[in-house]
Every structure is written in structure tokens, then in C-alpha cells.
Amino acid sequence: MTDSRHTPDSDDALTRHFRQHSTGEPPASLDAFILATARREAPAPKLSLWQRWGRACRQPRWQMAFATVAGVALMLGVVMRTNELDPGPQGRLAAPATFSAPAPMSAPPQAESYSAPLRSDALPQGKFAKRAAPQSLEQGLLEVVRLRAAGDEAAATAKLAELKQRFPSQNIEEQLKALPPR
């Protein structure tokens, strides 16, 4: 038994009103507040060593420091390498010991080699004797051997002491033993 007259139910009006005004999600201001709080409270991600290094290299105050360190390391490498390549006094060309007087016009000019051994008569005498080119280590060792062979042990010892003073980094005794006896 139903009544043909249908009266609107008060619940239907309430349901329609709720459906009209309900969107189903919280307001945008509440979303923004929650996201800001989460960002603030979340721990910052830890950067790896390479990321920290890359970030430091991009800062201008560190760029100059890194460039300076790299420049100093490069210069030290070049200097150390240059010392390895230097042949020492034995490998250099010897300068001519003296200037000779011009030859007479009738004699043909003679070619002199800079690497030719120095003759004792070509060395200057008198007050210019101190300006002669210094002996190389090998020449000094040969002089010591010659003095010992001549029986002049005192002069040989003095010459050996002079060579040790001039060439402190060389093992002079070993090099002297390696020379062939005369």
C-alpha cells in the first residue's frame, strides 16, 4: 500500500545539499601546508665525495687555489725532469781554453774542434792560469792514476780530496777502481 502522493523526503534534500557543496578533497592551502612541512622536516640528501668536490671546484675562491696547486705541481715536475736530462759537465762541449794569436798569412788556417782534449802547452801561463776550464771528473781521475804511477802519493791524495770536494754526489773511489791501471 503505497500512497500515490509522494512527499519529498527530508533526507533527500540533505543529500543533495551535501553533494553540491562537497568536492571530495581537502582545500589547496592545506595541501601546501603539508608539503612545506614535509620538505622542512625531511633530511637533506647526502652528497657523494665527487659531488662535493665538483661543487667546491665551481666556487671562485677554490678555483684559484686548485689552479695554484696544479701550477706548482707542474713546475716541480718540469724541474725534476730537467735535472734527469742534464748530462752534467762531462756531456757538455768544452769551451776553447785560450785564444791563440792570429796565424801568419803564409800558413793555412787550422780547424780546431771544441771537443778535442786540452794540451798542456795550450793552457795559459802566469796570472791567467786560474781562468782555465776546470777539469772534468774523468780527467781528474786519470790525473790521480798518473800521479800514483809516478810515485807522487801526496799529490795524488790532494787531487783526490779536491775531486771529492768538487763532485760530492759522485762515488769517486768506485770510479777510480773502475779505471784501467797504467
Rank of each mutant, 00 (worst) to 15 (best):
Q63Y: 00
L49V: 13
R61P: 10
S29I: 02
M64F: 04
G54F: 09
W53R: 03
Q63S: 05
W62N: 15
T68Q: 12
A28N: 09
R40I: 02
A42P: 07
A38W: 00
R39N: 13
A36W: 04
A32P: 06
P45L: 09
R52A: 14
W62A: 04
P26L: 07
M64P: 01
Q51M: 06
G54T: 11
E41N: 15
R61H: 12
A36E: 09
L35D: 11
A44N: 01
A36C: 05
D31E: 07
A65D: 05
C57K: 15
P26V: 03
E41D: 14
A32S: 10
S29P: 04
W50T: 15
K46T: 09
A42M: 12
P27I: 05
L30M: 12
K46P: 11
E25T: 12
K46Y: 00
T37E: 06
E25L: 05
P26S: 01
P60S: 13
G54P: 01
R61W: 09
W50E: 07
L47W: 14
E25K: 03
R61Q: 11
L49I: 08
L47S: 10
P45Q: 01
T37P: 01
R55G: 02
A44C: 01
R39H: 04
P26C: 00
R61K: 15
A36P: 01
E41L: 07
L47H: 09
A44F: 10
E41Q: 14
E25I: 05
A44L: 10
G54H: 11
